[in-house]
Design a binder for these strands. Structure first.
Lengths: 233, 233
DNA sequence: CGCCACATTGAAGGCAGTCAAAGGTGGTGG
DNA sequence: CCACCACCTTTGACTGCCTTCAATGTGGCG
C-alpha cells in the first residue's frame, strides 16, 4: 500500500513515516454495480481513492434528473472537499461497475497537512484542476448538444491516446450512452440524435461503443461552438 | 492594512510578522467602470481582494456571449486559483463600477504557505466554499429561467438582511438587469419576461431595482424547481 | 435638447425535453 | 440450450421554452 500511495502525485511529497501512518489509517471497501458510496448531503468525513472499477459523481437536479459531474477512473481521488471541517458532500457517488475504493479518514489527514506544507500544496493543486474542469463544464452548458458531444469525444480521444491524434483515431466509450448523456446535461434520446447528426455529417463513425473520428478538424470546430449546419468557406 | 487583513477569515491564522510581510508585498490598484482587471487565459500571478466597488468574474462562451460566474463585493477575494504554479486565469474579471483592489503576488504567498500549514487550511476552506457555490450554479442551469431568478432574489434577500426574511422584504438589485441575466445564463429579454411572470403571479413587486417579496413561500417553491403554473393543493 | 444605454414587449423560429414504441443485447434461470 | 426479462438504444411526433430580431419606451447625462 505504501508503494502504491507513493506513486500518486498528491502523496509524493510525504516521507516514509507519514506514508506508513497514512496507509495504516485507510480502509478498503468493495461496492457492487449501482451501489451508492455516499449521498449528497451526507456528513463528509474523508476522501476516496478509486483502485478498481468506475464511479460517477453526480447531483440530483431540482426536476429530479441526474446530472453527472465526473466519471472517476482507477488511480483518481475524489470527494477531496471532505478535508474541511463541518462539511457535507456536495454531490453523491455511485459505482457504475463493481469497484474498489480506499478511504482516507479526515482526522488523520489533517494531522499530516499540519506537518507537511508541501502536502497541502499538492492538495491545492488538485483543487485547481477541479476548478478548471468545473469551469469547462459550465461553458459546455451553453452549447448545443452536438457541440458538447464533440467536446467529450475529443477529450476522451486525447485521454486514451495522447499522442498522434489524427483522422481515423478510435475512441472507446467507457460508460454507456445514458451515462454520457447525464454528464453532458441531457438525456439519452437527445444524445442519440446528436450522435446521428455527427455521423450523418461525416465527422465520426459509430458502432456501439467504438467511435472512429473521420474529420478531426471539423469535429474541433463543432466542439468550439460552431453550429453543425454552418460551413465557413 | 495589517488590521484590515487580520479581519479576513483567510488571513486570521497568520501571526503579526507574516501579516506585516504580506501587507508589504501587496499593491493597490484603482480601476474605472468597465475596465478589465485581467482576461481569461492571462498568466495568473496572484490573487485579488476587492476593497471598494463591484467586480464581475465571467467567461466568454463559444457563441460569444458573456457568462458571469460571480459578482464580487467589497471584502471578498477572487482569482485564488492563481496560487498554483503555471496556471492561467480560468475566467476574466471586469469592474462594474469604479473599484479598488488589493493585489497579492503569488511568490510571496507561497512562502507564507510553506511556513504556515494553518494558512493553507484557510485557503483550502475557501476553495471548498467555492466548489459548493459552483455546484449550486450548475444545478441552477437545469432549471427554467423564472426558477433561477427566484433563487437569485432569495439569495440576495438573505445576503442583504440575514434576519427576519418575511413577506414584504425588500431587495435592491445591486447590478443592472442585463448583468443579472448574464449571471443567470440568459439574456435581458428573457429575464425581463421572467420578472413579469413572477410579478403577474403575485410573488414579487418590481419597481426598477427595488423588489418587494410578496409571497415568500411560493417564491421558495418556484426557486426549488416547481414550474410557475403548477399549484399543489 | 438629443444621444445612449437599459428595459420592455411582440412575433417567429428552433432546439431540446417528454412521451411512446420498437428493436437489440446480455444475463439469468429453468 | 433456450426462453424470458431487464436494460439500453434509437426513432417518431409533439410541445414548450428560450433565443433572435426588431421596435418602442425611458431615464440619465453631456
Amino acid at each position: 500500500m505504501v508503494d502504491y500511495l507513493r506513486q500518486m502525485p498528491i502523496f509524493s511529497a510525504l516521507g516514509k513515516d507519514d506514508l506508513a501512518r497514512l496507509a495504516s489509517t485507510t480502509s478498503t471497501r468493495r461496492i457492487d454495480k449501482g451501489e451508492a458510496l455516499f449521498h449528497e448531503g451526507d456528513e463528509a468525513d474523508g476522501f476516496y481513492l478509486l483502485t478498481e472499477g468506475r464511479i460517477k459523481v453526480f447531483k440530483i437536479t431540482p426536476d429530479g434528473r441526474e446530472q453527472t459531474l465526473h466519471f472517476i477512473s482507477p488511480g483518481e481521488t475524489f470527494a477531496e472537499v471532505a478535508l474541511f471541517s463541518g462539511s457535507t458532500y456536495p454531490a453523491g457517488a455511485q459505482s457504475l461497475e463493481r469497484s474498489e475504493v480506499v478511504f482516507f479518514p479526515r482526522a488523520d489527514l489533517l494531522e499530516i497537512v499540519e506537518k507537511n506544507p508541501q502536502f497541502s500544496l499538492g492538495i491545492m493543486a488538485g483543487f485547481a484542476r477541479w476548478v478548471r474542469q468545473f469551469n469547462t463544464l459550465l461553458s459546455e452548458y451553453t452549447k448545443a448538444v452536438p457541440s458538447r458531444l464533440a467536446g467529450y469525444l475529443l477529450a476522451e480521444a486525447l485521454r486514451q491516446q495522447p499522442t498522434a491524434l489524427a483522422d481515423g483515431a478510435r475512441v472507446t466509450l467507457e460508460v454507456n450512452k445514458t451515462e454520457i448523456a447525464s454528464l453532458l446535461g441531457t438525456i439519452s434520446a437527445t444524445l442519440s440524435r446528436a450522435f446521428a447528426q455527427l455521423r450523418d455529417a461525416g465527422l465520426i463513425e459509430v458502432s456501439d461503443r467504438e467511435i472512429v473520428i473521420r474529420d478531426l478538424a471539423r469535429l474541433r470546430d463543432i466542439a468550439s461552438g460552431t453550429a453543425l449546419g454552418d460551413s465557413k468557406h
